[in-house]
Design a protein around this nucleic acid. Structure first.
Lengths: 144, 144
DNA sequence: TAACATTATATCGTACACGATATAATCTAT
DNA sequence: ATAGATTATATCGTGTACGATATAATGTTA
């Protein structure tokens, strides 16, 4: 047996699993809003700053257009955003919140607090969370 | 603006992104072996212990059968594993490595080392990695 | 200014994820 | 022994991810 291959040694598997479980934990909170987790990420980007072009949202979420375009199309079908062709640059697509999309922010405002309760159990303290966030940021930077 | 919604504050987004980037980093290493990352996880489980039933692999990878069955079917089509019906319990499906599947372990043995070089940059030390793994384990435990 | 490269987005094909449901085998309590 | 519950796996539908390719608009350069 090659010891390095053992699943227990793998940081990657943990990140993969944690990511899946977190998305699952979001589901019951997001379902009432009619959002999936990736759609929620897009909404957060737009709530922070409305009227962004596809490419800027891509860069923010580190996703390519082949992933984001279908998501935006579904969100447009749901009436959360509208996509208009750029005026100065005809290649760009501008994504804007609809009234419905803007109103959703109010309904979403408690989600982060709800989620954070999942990992503020007795054996997970603030320092560890801060360290984890820092470490993941470095990891992401190395991988980018 | 609701401050909690800011993307920068979100641990979840980091985990989601790190997981995607790691899977991407695996791709060039796994492609020569004809494996995807989830398939590689299955192979690691089977290399560690051959002849396991679907349910045990599910529990090990924390995946449900609706995800794992199609993966196993593709792996069977590729000649990496065979699936046979259980003898003692007719509901079970036993998954076994083929000769091809077993031989692949030799080719895969350097992958963990290659991968770990991605996050052993100058500003990421061993202690941080250990802490991160511990913290993610706790997180997974809370979410499970 | 006409060819050519570049850029922004979209489309396509394959492979996950996962909730919901189906199916078939085993177990259990009459 | 048999109806009903449970368990193990499979199937289905929808929504990502992502490499590869297409398309169309903009820049660039001879």
């Amino acid at each position: 047996m090659h010891e390095q291959l053992k699943l227990g040694n793998q940081l990657c598997f943990r990140l993969y699993t944690a990511s899946r479980l977190i998305t699952q934990a979001y589901r019951p909170l997001l379902e009432p809003l009619g959002l999936t987790y990736p759609q929620y990420l897009v909404m957060m980007v737009l709530w922070e700053q409305d009227n962004q072009i596809v490419g800027d949202i891509c860069r923010r979420l580190m996703l390519d257009t082949n992933t984001l375009t279908p998501i935006l199309q579904r969100m447009e079908r749901e009436g959360l955003v509208v996509r208009t062709h750029g005026i100065t640059d005809g290649r760009q697509t501008l994504v804007s919140l609809t009234k419905k999309g803007k109103h959703l922010e109010e309904q979403a405002k408690d989600i982060p607090k709800c989620m954070s309760q999942n990992w503020h159990g007795e054996d997970m303290n603030m320092a560890q969370l801060t360290n984890m966030v820092e470490a993941i940021d470095k990891l992401i930077k190395e991988l980018k």
